[in-house]
Amino acid sequence: HAATELTPEQAAALKPYDRIVITGRFNAIGDAVSAVSRRADEEGAASFYVVDTSEFGNSGNWRVVADVYKA
């Protein structure tokens, strides 16, 4: 099962156990969220919340930071 994305309210009520950072070329924010979901799932997380997204220069590469939560 894939890790689910939390709302800001849900994330605020929970304590993350880790923070992950992924970088890559994403065509849309949805693609980045899917990549975070896969990584969170690999780490055994039940859910995640994207904290920050930023573009690296003009290369089209993105850096996505997310907190991950157990259950």
Results as ranks from 00 to 15, higher is better:
Glu55Thr: 11
Asp18Lys: 15
Phe48Val: 02
Ala66Gln: 01
Glu5Gly: 06
Lys70Val: 08
Asn58Gln: 12
Arg63Cys: 11
Arg38Phe: 07
Gly60Ile: 04
Glu43Val: 15
Gln10Thr: 05
Ser59Phe: 09
Val68Leu: 15
Phe26Gly: 02
Arg38His: 08
Thr53Ile: 15
Ile22Ala: 01
Ala32Tyr: 06
Thr4Gly: 06
Val36Ser: 02
Gln10Met: 09
Ala35Trp: 06
Asn61Leu: 15
Thr7Cys: 08
Val50Ala: 00
Glu43Ala: 14
Asp52Cys: 15
Ala13Asp: 09
Phe26Pro: 00
Glu9Leu: 09
Pro8Asp: 09
Ser34Val: 13
Ala35Arg: 04
Asn58Trp: 08
Ala45Glu: 01
Thr23Ile: 15
Pro8Ile: 10
Thr53Ala: 15
Glu5Ala: 10
Glu42Leu: 12
Gly57Leu: 07
Asn61Thr: 13
Ala12His: 08
Gly57Asp: 13
Phe48Tyr: 08
Arg39Val: 10
Val36Ile: 12
Val65His: 02
Ala11Phe: 02
His1Leu: 07
Gly44Ala: 04
Val50Ser: 00
Asn58Ile: 12
Glu43Arg: 11
Val21Leu: 04
Ala35His: 06
Ala35Gln: 06
Pro8Trp: 15
Ala66Trp: 04
Thr7Arg: 07
Ala46Phe: 11
Arg19Pro: 00
Thr53Cys: 15
Asn27Pro: 09
Asp67Leu: 15
Phe56Trp: 11
Val64Met: 03
Gly57Met: 08
Arg25Gln: 11
Asp41Arg: 15
Val65Trp: 04
Ser54Phe: 14
Asp31Ala: 07
Thr7Asp: 06
Thr53His: 11
Phe48Thr: 00
Gly57Asn: 08
Ile20Gly: 00
Asn27Leu: 12
Glu43Tyr: 15
Phe26Gln: 01
Ala32His: 01
Ala40Val: 06
Arg63Pro: 01
Asn61Phe: 15
Phe48Ala: 00
Val51Ser: 02
Asn27Thr: 12
Val64Gln: 00
Val21Asp: 02
Thr23Met: 11
Ala46Asn: 12
Ser37Asp: 02
Glu42Ser: 09
Phe56Gly: 07
Val64Ser: 00
Leu6Asn: 03
Tyr69Lys: 03
Ala46Trp: 13
Tyr17Ala: 01
Ala46Tyr: 12
Trp62Arg: 02
Ser34Phe: 10
Ala46Asp: 14
Phe26Glu: 00
His1Trp: 08
Val33Pro: 01
Ala32Asn: 01
Val65Asn: 01
Glu9Ala: 12
Phe56Pro: 07
Asn27Ser: 12
Pro8Phe: 14
Tyr17Ser: 04
Asp18Gly: 15
Asp31Ile: 10
Phe48Gln: 00
Ile22Arg: 00
Phe26Asn: 00
Gly44Leu: 03
Ser54Thr: 14
